[in-house]
Amino acid sequence: MKRTGLIERSLRTIMKVFTWLPQKSNRVLFESFLGKQYSDSPRAIYELMRTMHPECELIFSKQRGVTFPRDVKTVDRLTFRWIYLLATSRVWVSNSRLPGWLIKPKKTYYLQTWHGTPLKKLALDMDDVQMANTTTERYKQGFKQETAKWSGLISPNAYSSSIFRRAFAFEGEMLEIGYPRNDIFYQEARHAKIKETVYRHYEIDSSKKVLLYAPTWRDNAFEGQGKYSFELPFSLEEFEKRFGDEYVLLIRMHYLVGSRLDVTAYPSVRNASNYPDIAELYMASDALITDYSSVMFDFAHLSRPILFYTYDLEHYRDQLRGFYFDFEQEAPGPLLSTETALFEELNQLDDWHTRYASAFRAFQETYCQWDDGQASERAMKTIIKRIYG
Results as ranks from 00 to 15, higher is better:
2 K>A: 11
4 T>G: 03
5 G>Y: 15
8 E>N: 10
9 R>N: 15
12 R>P: 04
14 I>Q: 05
19 T>R: 02
20 W>P: 01
21 L>F: 15
33 F>Q: 11
34 L>E: 11
36 K>Y: 07
36 K>M: 12
42 P>K: 12
42 P>V: 14
44 A>G: 08
47 E>G: 04
48 L>E: 05
59 I>M: 07
59 I>Y: 09
60 F>A: 08
61 S>E: 11
69 P>F: 09
72 V>P: 01
77 R>P: 02
87 A>I: 06
89 S>Q: 05
94 S>V: 07
99 P>H: 04
106 K>W: 02
113 T>D: 06
116 G>W: 12
125 D>C: 01
126 M>D: 01
128 D>W: 14
132 A>T: 11
134 T>W: 11
144 K>R: 13
144 K>P: 00
146 E>S: 10
149 K>G: 02
151 S>V: 13
154 I>L: 13
164 F>I: 06
166 R>C: 00
180 P>Y: 09
180 P>T: 10
181 R>E: 03
181 R>Q: 06
182 N>C: 12
183 D>P: 02
190 R>H: 11
192 A>L: 09
193 K>T: 14
195 K>E: 15
197 T>C: 04
203 E>N: 07
207 S>T: 15
208 K>C: 05
209 K>M: 09
212 L>E: 04
213 Y>L: 05
213 Y>W: 15
216 T>A: 10
218 R>F: 14
218 R>E: 08
226 G>D: 08
233 P>W: 00
240 E>A: 13
242 R>D: 11
244 G>Y: 11
249 L>W: 10
249 L>R: 07
251 I>E: 00
253 M>H: 08
262 D>Q: 08
264 T>E: 15
269 V>H: 06
269 V>L: 06
272 A>K: 10
279 A>D: 01
280 E>H: 15
284 A>R: 03
292 Y>A: 08
295 V>M: 03
295 V>D: 08
298 D>A: 12
302 L>W: 14
305 P>A: 05
306 I>E: 09
312 D>R: 12
313 L>T: 04
314 E>Y: 10
319 Q>M: 08
320 L>S: 01
323 F>H: 09
327 F>V: 12
330 E>S: 03
333 G>Y: 09
334 P>I: 01
336 L>H: 04
342 L>V: 02
343 F>L: 11
347 N>I: 01
348 Q>L: 12
350 D>F: 10
353 H>L: 07
353 H>W: 03
357 A>S: 12
360 F>M: 05
360 F>V: 05
362 A>G: 10
370 W>K: 12
373 G>Q: 14
374 Q>I: 04
375 A>F: 05
376 S>R: 04
379 A>K: 10
383 I>P: 00
386 R>I: 06
389 G>L: 03
